[in-house]
Computed example of a mutant assay.
Amino acid sequence: MDIRTAVGDLTVRHPAGPRTLHRLPDGEEPKPYELFGIEPVTGLIGAEVSGVDLREPVGPVLFAELDRALLEWKVLFFRGQHVTAGQHLDFARRWGELEVNPFFPQEVPYLSRIEASAQKPGGQNVWHADGTWREKPLLGSVLRAVEVPEAGGDTCFADMGAAYDGLSAEMKRRIDELTAVDDFALSFGPGMDADKLAELRVKYPAVEHPVVRCHPRTGRRTLFVNPAFTTHITGLEAGESEALLGFLFQQVAVPEYQVRFRWEADSIALWDNQATQHYAVNDYFPQHRLMERVAILDEHPAAFS
């Protein structure tokens, strides 16, 4: 059975049946990992790493293997990591310079606390990639669970390379050369003091990125629009832009592209922000959930493939 969707003047066909999924870029073969165990959570995205103690410094050989695993699996999970704030930061720094986030409280520099409780319900339940409102979007993030609810509070991740691969050839031709505008105010602006919003708009103006980004490390094409920060597609009439973005936003929801992680206290997730989007499931109110996040800056501006 096929499903057809009208997107502006284009009718998009969604064939039912098996999906062909590619964890690695074309022509690249998986290689074993010598310094740690790795257990896939799905066949496409997400793997749990065992045999690594993140309280210890990550040397160059171990880093090279972890970096390769990150590019292959897009998100790595570590259980039982009783790290200090300093150790958390040191681990993230292996991938690059750290972000100072202007929207999350940081009692420790570079370490953001993301908290939800009966007094402050969680609000991260929207698919997004971190920092696409920046000229140079973030390379990745390292998120640690400090306190988790008895049930609920999972995080879902989606492979946006697979999301692009799953589009029809006609849709790919339509979007491959388009750009879109991302703006922090779409998510962080509502309720913000007008003076503060104006100040941040000067520092972080809206930016334009390719709708389809070339991953700077793997060369793989990835769908690079998200409902948290992407406001419109450049050069399109408003209705056409809205229809096309609405369709592209839906691609993240395909279960075959996703992994869902059940947190435990002292679990850590490291993800490739250039290849994924994520969604914090807000199904645990009024229970308490406290996470600590460190984000890694990217030296590469978003670029076409």
Results as ranks from 00 to 15, higher is better:
128 H>L: 05
125 N>D: 15
145 A>H: 04
122 G>P: 11
129 A>V: 00
129 A>G: 15
104 F>Q: 14
130 D>S: 13
106 Q>I: 03
143 L>Q: 06
99 E>K: 13
120 K>G: 01
117 S>N: 12
125 N>R: 12
140 G>P: 05
145 A>C: 07
103 F>T: 01
133 W>C: 00
135 E>Y: 01
119 Q>G: 05
135 E>V: 07
142 V>A: 14
108 V>T: 14
141 S>D: 03
114 I>W: 01
139 L>R: 12
99 E>M: 04
113 R>D: 04
120 K>M: 07
104 F>I: 02
117 S>I: 10
125 N>K: 10
126 V>W: 09
118 A>M: 04
117 S>G: 11
123 G>T: 10
123 G>A: 11
146 V>F: 07
108 V>I: 15
108 V>F: 03
101 N>Q: 11
133 W>D: 07
100 V>M: 05
104 F>N: 14
118 A>H: 11
133 W>T: 03
111 L>Y: 09
108 V>E: 11
115 E>G: 08
111 L>E: 10
110 Y>K: 15
110 Y>N: 14
115 E>F: 04
129 A>F: 05
141 S>A: 15
130 D>N: 10
140 G>I: 13
106 Q>D: 09
106 Q>H: 03
109 P>L: 04
148 V>M: 11
143 L>M: 12
121 P>I: 00
103 F>P: 01
145 A>G: 06
110 Y>M: 10
110 Y>R: 14
127 W>K: 06
105 P>M: 07
147 E>W: 00
109 P>C: 03
105 P>T: 09
135 E>T: 03
102 P>R: 05
108 V>N: 06
115 E>R: 10
144 R>D: 06
145 A>K: 02
100 V>G: 04
146 V>D: 12
113 R>E: 13
148 V>Y: 02
116 A>G: 15
100 V>C: 08
148 V>D: 01
114 I>D: 10
138 L>F: 01
112 S>G: 08
131 G>Q: 08
109 P>Y: 01
118 A>C: 02
124 Q>L: 12
111 L>G: 00
107 E>M: 07
140 G>A: 12
135 E>W: 03
130 D>G: 05
137 P>L: 10
103 F>I: 03
137 P>I: 12
107 E>K: 08
113 R>S: 15
103 F>H: 06
110 Y>C: 14
105 P>K: 10
114 I>G: 06
130 D>Y: 04
101 N>H: 15
121 P>Q: 00
117 S>F: 11
136 K>R: 15
136 K>I: 00
106 Q>W: 00
111 L>D: 04
143 L>R: 01
128 H>Y: 06
125 N>Y: 09
129 A>N: 04
145 A>Q: 08
111 L>Q: 02
142 V>M: 09
136 K>Q: 14
127 W>H: 03
113 R>N: 04
99 E>H: 12
118 A>Y: 12
134 R>H: 14
145 A>L: 04
136 K>P: 07
130 D>K: 05
99 E>V: 15
138 L>Q: 12
107 E>G: 08
113 R>P: 01
120 K>Y: 06
103 F>L: 01
132 T>H: 10
107 E>W: 07
134 R>C: 13
134 R>M: 13
110 Y>A: 06
129 A>L: 01
104 F>K: 11
105 P>D: 11
100 V>I: 11
107 E>F: 08
125 N>Q: 15
114 I>Q: 05
105 P>A: 11
145 A>T: 00
126 V>G: 02
101 N>P: 09
107 E>C: 00
118 A>V: 04
119 Q>R: 15
122 G>H: 12
